[in-house]
Structure formats: structure tokens, C-alpha cells
């Protein structure tokens, strides 16, 4: 849920969420999603913004059966850690797949989907999810 409805917040994160914009550290080579000012691994400032690869593999996953507000009516759904080609790890929902068909190591690809509504009359927030590669 969002505690306070906020169009600016949705707007501010939009591009990074829509286009999988990650950060590449010029010092340690670390790849993180999303892009940010400072490398969490070595403290280097000035990460390069890069569009991350759209394919990867499931590292681990969980099935959400008791959803938080804003996600009611979607359960059960799957959240997963996806390791993209190149090594960046992204936490995202898996989609177009039944929970019982998900496997660790499964190959997945990015799609653009609806995540949540800030409220029934509020802003709709979109972002990248992953589906089994087709």
C-alpha cells in the first residue's frame, strides 16, 4: 500500500521502473537495480545509469498468499529475485505463470505490467515484471 498517495513519487521513479535502469559502479564493477548515487558495495559515487538486460534466471521466489493493501484480489502471486544477464539482481513479480510451475533457475524475460493502484481513484503504477521466457 502507499501510506500517502503521491503522484510525484510515482512520477519520479517511473523511468527507472519502466526501463530497468540500473547503476554500474566504475570502481568495483558492481551492478545494482535501481540506479542510485552511491555504490552500496564500495561507496563509490557517480554510478553510471545503464539499461539492464531484459532476460535472467530465478534465484529464489516466494508465493504471496496474504497480500498487503493495494494488492488484494491478486493473490496468490509470486515475487522472485531474478539475476539478469550481467549479474544485476532485481526483486520483481513473476507473471503469466502459476505458483506451482515456478522453479529456481527458470529462465525469465521482462514485461511491462501494472503493479498497483495508489487507491481506487488514484494513480496507477506500472513497472517491469518477469514471465517465463517464450
Amino acid at each position: 500500500m502507499v501510506w500517502v498517495e503521491s503522484a510525484p513519487r510515482a512520477w519520479r521513479e517511473g523511468t527507472r521502473r519502466y526501463r530497468l535502469i540500473g547503476g554500474k559502479c566504475p570502481s568495483c564493477g558492481g551492478l545494482v537495480y535501481p540506479h542510485r548515487q552511491v555504490c552500496p558495495y564500495c561507496g563509490r559515487e557517480g554510478l553510471e545509469a545503464v539499461a539492464l538486460p531484459r532476460r535472467g534466471r530465478v534465484v529464489t521466489y516466494a508465493v504471496v498468499r496474504n497480500p498487503p493493501r493495494g494488492f488484494e484480489g491478486r493473490e496468490p502471486y509470486v515475487i522472485a529475485v531474478v539475476e539478469l544477464e550481467g549479474g544485476a539482481r532485481v526483486l520483481a513479480q513473476l507473471t503469466d505463470v502459476r505458483p506451482e510451475d515456478v522453479r529456481v533457475g527458470m529462465e525469465v524475460e521482462a514485461v511491462f505490467r501494472r503493479y498497483r493502484e495508489q487507491s481506487p481513484s488514484g494513480v496507477i503504477e506500472y513497472g517491469v515484471k518477469f514471465r517465463p521466457a517464450i
Binding site: V63, N66, P68, R74, I79, L91, Y115, G127
Partner: peptide
């Protein structure tokens, strides 16, 4: 409880605090 986590990139996905621990569990 989920406010313990990154609101913009983790909780945004519909992840609950329980499910984040479930990710570790499966790993």
C-alpha cells in the same frame, strides 16, 4: 511491517515482509 523495507523497489512489487523472508528460506 513492510515499511522496514525499500518502499519504492521492494514493497512496490507487492512483497510482504513474510515473503521476503521466504525468499531467503528457499535459497
Amino acid at each position: 511491517l513492510a515499511t522496514a523495507e525499500d518502499q519504492e523497489y521492494v514493497v512496490f512489487t507487492g512483497a510482504t515482509f513474510v515473503s521476503l523472508n521466504a525468499l531467503l528460506y528457499r535459497l
